[in-house]
Amino acid sequence: MAAENARALLDLSSLEVTYGPDQAPVVQDLCLRIERGQAVGILGESGAGKSTIALAILDLLPRAARRKGRIHFDGLDLLGRAESIRAIRFRRISLVLQDCMNAFNPVIRIGEQIAELWVCHERTRWKEALRRAGALLERFGLSAELTGSYPHELSGGMRQRVALAMAVALSPELVIVDEPTSALDVVTANAVVELLGAVRRESGASLLVISHDVSVLARCCDRIAVMGEGRILEEGPAARVLRQPEHAATRSLIAAVPRLAAFREKP
C-alpha cells in the first residue's frame, strides 16, 4: 500500500475543504491519484467543487478556508508543511486559471511576463530569458514578435496559448488547467485541446484538466473523475466513463452534449 502510494505523482485522499468555520464542506471525502505522465480530467457542473481542488493542491485558498485529509505530491506531504509549497508552486505544479485574461498583468509586455518566470525561479539573465520567451512562443504556434505585445492586443485563443506556454516554461511535472476552453469558440477550443495533447507528449508532464465539457475531456484525458456536490461520483478510464456511465450525474452530463438532430421535427 505504502509503496503503491509512493509511486503516484499526486495522491489526494480523504480531502475535505471548507471555506469558513461554520460552512458546509465544498469538497469532501475526495480521493484521486494521478500517475506520472497521466492525463486526468475532472468533469462536473459549476459549483461541484472542481476549481476548489486545484486551489487546495497549491494552497491558494482564501485564508479562512480549511483543508483536511492528505495531499501528497511525489511523496511530499503538501498539507503538513506550509513552507514547502513555495518551492513546488509553478516550478513543479503549474496552474492555468479559468479566465486567462485576468492572469496577465495588463501593463507589462507578454515577453517580460514570460521571461520573469526564469528570472525569478532560475536566476536567468533578462536578455537570455527574453530570448527564451520568444522561442517558447514559437513552440506554441505563436510569433516570437508577440513578446512585444500587451495582453489586450491578443485574441482569447492566443492568450490561452500564452498561458499554457507559461505553465510549461519551468518544466513542471504536473500542469493543472481549469476550464481551458469555456471562453473560446469551438474551432479555437479544439486547437487548445490539441495543444494540451502536444504539451503532454513534448514535456512528459501529467495533466489535471478541469472542465464541464465532456468533449474536451474525452479528447485529452486517459481517466475521468466525475464530481458532484463536492464528491467524486465515479472515476475510471475516459472511454469507459463516457460510454458506460455508472452514475446518473454522468449520464445527464453526456445527455447534455448535443446530438445532431435531437429536437428537430421530421419534415
Partner: peptide
C-alpha cells in the same frame, strides 16, 4: 468543414489514446 470537425456532437465524440 472546420466547424463540423470541432463540433461537440455526441456522434462525433473521440477519445484520447
Amino acid at each position: 468543414r472546420e466547424l463540423l470537425a470541432s463540433s461537440r456532437a455526441r456522434e462525433l465524440l473521440t477519445y484520447a489514446g
